[in-house]
Write a protein that binds this DNA or RNA. Sequence first.
DNA 1: AGCACGCCGACT
DNA 2: GTCGGCGTGCTC
Length: 656
Amino acid sequence: MYCKVVFDVPLDRDFDYAVPVALADKIMPGVRVTAPFGRVLTGGMVVSVSEVCTAPEGIKLKEIASVVDKRPLFGSDLFPLMRFMKANWGGPIGQILFALVPPQPYFKLENPPSSVHIAVQTPSFKLTSSQENALKTIRSFAAYEFHPVLLNGPAYTGKTETVLRLAGEVLAGYGQALITVPDIAAARQFIAEAEARFGTENVYCWHSRMLLSKKKKYFSAVSNGVPCVVISTRSGALLPFKNLRLAAVLDEGDEHYKQEENKPYYHLRDLLMFRAQMHGAVLLFSSQTPSMEMLKWVEEGKILQLPFTQPVPGHHFNPQIKITNKKGERSKYLSDFLLAQLAENLNRKETALLILNRRGYSNAYYCLNCGSYAKCKKCGAILARENTPEHGDRLICKKCGHAESLQQECPLCHNLIFKSRGGGTQKIVTELAKFFPKARLLRLDSDTLKTKSGQGFEALGALKSGQADIIVGTRLASGALRGAKVTLAAVLDAELELDGPDFRASEKYGQMLFDLRGHLSGLADGRLIIQAADKEAYDYAPLLAGDYSAAAETELALRESFLYPPFVRLIKVLIKAKETDLLHAETARIKRMAAPLALDTLGPVWCAKKTDTLKKQYLLFKTDDRRWLDLLAKLDSWTPAKKVTLKIAADPYDFY
DNA sequence: AGCACGCCGACT
DNA sequence: GTCGGCGTGCTC
């Protein structure tokens, strides 16, 4: 007897082994084994078993050493799921497989609990007609049928309540439900609510950085088909569900749902579409700012949209929204209106949040008179100032590479004097301290969150408790607003990111604005101030009206005319090398190979600083579904020249 | 990814 | 003389 084994290494292939007679009846696909591999004995997984040897000739087979599992840890959807992930996002099958199953041989299944106690508590307040309608529709679906649904509506329309009720019904029917959240730390309250309704022992809170003993317990229970509600970040979607009846994705449009840092890469949205289909489960997406991909699915009829329109009782407020200049009489950074509002907020002892909407633009060049940014004459992107020994002090376009001199004329006010954008949150804090010397000011950005003792954590706490007067943060602060006691929010640098290299910039910007609007609309006196030098750079009318679908329609039309996702699919190839010549040569080789297989090729585009020791650039290929498999497979199996490393990202979200 | 083999620099 | 740097190659 023979079998094929995949190992927990980044190799895109399986290996043939002989099965000793004593182990023959224990060997089956999906079972983990230990086997001699290279010079060591390691854990692997059997992917197929056969009576005949199909190993290539001239290779002496080694024998399986031991069988770890009595039964497969994962259900029958393991290999289809692995193949789906391979086809969609690429990467070595070894890595994909062992993202779904614990690689350690000592990690064994625990026995299911002998009994489970399920008593679901549901609050008895009156539901809105949107909620009633959604519940009625979803309850009418036949069991074990796949039904994808988008709960689409602004904040405080009761989407999450609807999800909780449906999850409760699944649990009461002894089924398994999965609810994903973008960030587990931000979901504290939601988890507490779920535990109160479903019982602490039936709610499994799953994320990648949890204790191994807990992981083992939850993994086993899920694999054993124990009824439960799993609340997790995106990685929970990879759990070995036995009886998944409902999967729900809260805040569907959130960027956290794309895994691009570590392999295997995947996007939760597409992954759950596949898994829910395999399981015959109901799949809910809920969002006030759904992604363009999702909205296109709605348009195509691939997903049923259930609109949520009525606010839940006590939340019918509309925040005041005001768009002001970027600078005022008294300050270069803060408009007069914002200063007045901040002063009022301080009097009322309420917390304000100021957001700097800049990322990767610490060196933009702006007009000293009106605050507009110098833009590329070729493509209109915002220029960055760069001082290199070879080219001296100049402005460079990060999108198309076009370079310009420091002599610029402001496109709006024709002023000729410009200045580099310096500093970040600290500069704003210093500026605020001048006007409000007695206010408690805190910074909240990735810098202050790096160390445990930093201000960032204090600021996060202050958002909830109201223990600060003004918090100055980057965009990550806007994501931490759930349940915050913030009555005034301001975006200081509105249009800065819109013309960056990321084609999703305006979608993300819109999502941030609508998110802020949503949070503030829960308060009787919520105010949102947007400081923009160029008020035409973004269409604010849908925001003022609170109509995300109008904003999305414009965005979708743009994507279609410029051929960007969701109308094409992208593959980003990041090429890294120490020497520039080597890098260029390899980039050219890849472009020559892949360009004929793609609809269009963009780049190469430099990323990060060219002064780094490691030079990096990327190519972007546009494809359609028909060419996708072939192009991804070709790129995935491409062996780069020596001293060059590649990173292939399918459906990329990161362009910096 | 590991792990070993292999070929050049600065130590007792 | 050799200890150890990491560049290269292989895993049934």
